[in-house]
């Protein structure tokens, strides 16, 4: 067993008297993809900022690759790659110049760099854009450039803050595929997301965060089976309230309102499906439980615009 890549103990950050990250303990192992899930304002970005040594903790401690952070953050950052929540690529440069310049910050500017950049461009399907300015790139291309920029120093750990937020489905698929391939090369990944689907597909372990606290942690599928019945039936339509009161509430004691519909959580789905078959004015969807159900159960349904 090699030492964990990240260890934090009671890590806390207080802004304006309120804890934004609250006594967080994590152990992230080498080679795993570790996902941090949480609604807007949960404290995900603040946690990552402490992890990369961008802001000192108010209390508690964190070590990354064995370095105490922020004391030895510079040496630690030489060995990690960071993909920020918002792209901060250099608009004064072409794609190629962006990579060369960023490599310069790591003290890399020698003959080996040219070949390295060619590989990275190929990896991100950006070879044809090597000499293009950023204004001619799509959102997906910019995100891929941010990703390979973070790989320029051959990092052991990759930190990604919402890597696919705002991308269309094709662009997301491509990023996911590349992240899986990096994972298979043994690069440890830490990513934040609020897409459950993303976490389910990429992560070996997810941790759910809200109001600065870590709520639950585990393999996505294990979390689902631990917290949610295997069957979920979503029902909408006219006369729902009445049908719910008279029939469904009794058949499915665990249920929730969701917008103008109801969600029913069931170990045995058959009685409710039978009851639904006579109801022409109701429409329904029967699906397996997923991480989103866990997430909503743990963090509640109210809207977060924070």
């Amino acid at each position: 067993m090699s030492a964990p890549v990240v260890v934090s103990r009671a890590l806390t950050k207080v802004y304006a008297g309120a804890p934004v990250v609250d006594r967080v303990d994590v152990n992230i192992d080498r080679g795993e993809c570790w996902g941090l899930l949480g609604p807007n304002g949960a404290g995900k970005t603040t946690f990552l900022r402490m992890l990369v040594g961008r802001t000192p903790p108010t209390s508690g401690e964190i070590r990354v690759l064995g370095y105490p952070v922020p004391q030895q953050a510079s040496a630690m950052r030489a060995r990690i790659g960071v993909v920020p929540q918002l792209d901060n690529l250099d608009p004064d440069f072409t794609v190629n110049e962006n990579l060369r310049t960023y490599a310069g910050y790591f003290g890399i500017h020698h003959s080996r760099l040219r070949a390295r950049i060619r590989e990275l461009l190929e990896f991100a399907a950006l070879s044809h854009k090597a000499d293009a300015y950023l204004s001619t790139l799509s959102g997906g291309m910019l995100r891929r450039l941010s990703l390979i920029r973070a790989l320029v120093n051959a990092p052991e750990l990759l930190v990604l803050d919402e890597p696919t937020t705002g991308l269309d489905p094709q662009a997301r698929q491509l990023i996911w595929q590349r992240l899986r391939s990096l994972r298979s090369e043994g690069i440890t990944q830490i990513l934040t997301t609020h897409y459950m689907e993303e976490a389910e597909r990429l992560c070996d372990r997810v941790t759910i965060m809200d109001h600065g606290r870590l709520l639950e942690s585990g393999h996505p599928r294990a979390l689902v089976s631990e917290h949610i019945e295997p069957h979920v039936i979503e029902v909408h339509g006219e006369g729902l309230q009445r049908w719910h009161k008279e029939t469904a509430a009794r058949l499915a004691p665990r249920h929730e309102t969701a917008g103008d519909g109801f969600l029913y959580y069931l170990n045995d789905e058959r009685p409710l499906l039978e009851a639904l078959s006579g109801q022409e004015r109701l429409s329904f969807l029967h699906r397996p439980a997923n991480l989103e159900d866990v997430f909503l159960k743990l963090t509640g349904r109210e809207l977060r615009d924070g």
């Binding site: 510079s74 040496a75 030489a78 003290g107 890399i108 320029v152 051959a154």
Partner: peptide, 11 residues
Amino acid sequence: MAESTTTLRRI
């Protein structure tokens, strides 16, 4: 995208 790290890192 692994790489012999010694060739690439010279802080």
